[in-house]
Design a protein around this nucleic acid. Structure first.
Lengths: 177, 177
DNA sequence: TTTTAATTTAATTCG
DNA sequence: CGAATTAAATTAAT
């Protein structure tokens, strides 16, 4: 009854002596494995008798089943890691956008300060942005804003309005600041 | 000559009739596998004759060897994924610091603009930061800077100096801007 | 239908 | 027993 030629093994007749377990036997083993991953001696003998296979084979099945169970967990870990990576990358991209926005706002604020400095009053002569790292700023400030007049000044504050995200019809909640 | 009982299979005598390949045979197969992962018919027959095993077994060995080779790559993939995650997280943290710095700079620039607005000239009355989202800013601006005098004004530009990272002895290369 | 890639399974070996 | 490996069987795809 415990050979591969017994009545339960006719599904697809195995040519050789490798004793494959049929559906019913595997079902019982899986149920047992669900309750306990460890195989007690008593349970081993009971299953061997119930399935009509040597106890040795029950032990082997349990070992292989434990290995498979562990591999499944590893695969889950891999997927979890992948999801974490995706989240990190998306958050990183979000932060990159944010820094870019902030840099732009700072740039505008700086331009406005330069404009105010040269256009409103000459109190702070020692405040200079002359720097090899900021050539674009300097040229802009010296060519355009050194000759600032009232019109230019107002225009700058209009830009500030836009910069802080003021809605057309609202003065509230400029969250960017 | 091609059974598991031939002279080359005495290393550790297999209890059962399973045909294991000995070291020498595996060595030859591995060398062949290193050169080409694909098994041509001619090579299969040649190896079968050389090792004294049926061609069928050569095919099977190659199949299993390819599977093992692929599994090794999966482990590498996992490690690579882990490294990518670490990089992404560290870059993310760097960006978070950066945004925080930028926010601080913007905050200071904003305060300076408010100071300049209320202290230098009253041209832009309609420019208001009143907003429920910016209570801290507003209170600060109204309680401190509304009464700005020349001393406060200069102090603000000193802050700007610090803000843009000016060195004590240098006016050059304030890279933050 | 044959061949092969891919997956699964039972079994072995080693530590 | 666990980890790693192996041979074989099975299934899917061509």
């Amino acid at each position: 009854m415990n050979s591969c030629f017994n009545s339960q093994n006719l599904q697809k007749f195995p040519k050789h002596n490798k004793k494959r377990l049929n559906q019913e036997q595997v079902k019982i083993l899986e149920a047992s494995f669900d309750s306990t991953k460890k195989l007690e001696l008593e349970k081993k003998l009971q299953l061997a008798k119930e399935l009509g296979v040597p106890p040795r084979q029950i032990s082997i099945w349990y070992q292989n089943r434990r290995a498979r169970w562990k591999n499944q967990n590893l695969e889950n870990d891999y997927n979890a890691l992948q999801i974490k990576l995706e989240n990190a990358l998306s958050e990183k991209m979000q932060l990159e956008k944010e820094t870019e926005t902030l840099r732009g706002e700072l740039e505008k604020a700086k331009e406005m300060l330069v404009a105010l400095k040269s256009g409103a009053q000459g109190q702070i002569r020692e405040f200079s942005l002359s720097s090899s790292c900021c050539e674009d700023v300097i040229s802009y400030s010296t060519t355009t804003w050194v000759h600032s007049d009232e019109a230019n000044f107002n225009f700058q504050f209009d830009e500030l309005y836009a910069m802080i995200g003021a809605e057309e019809n609202s003065n509230y909640c400029r969250s960017t600041w």
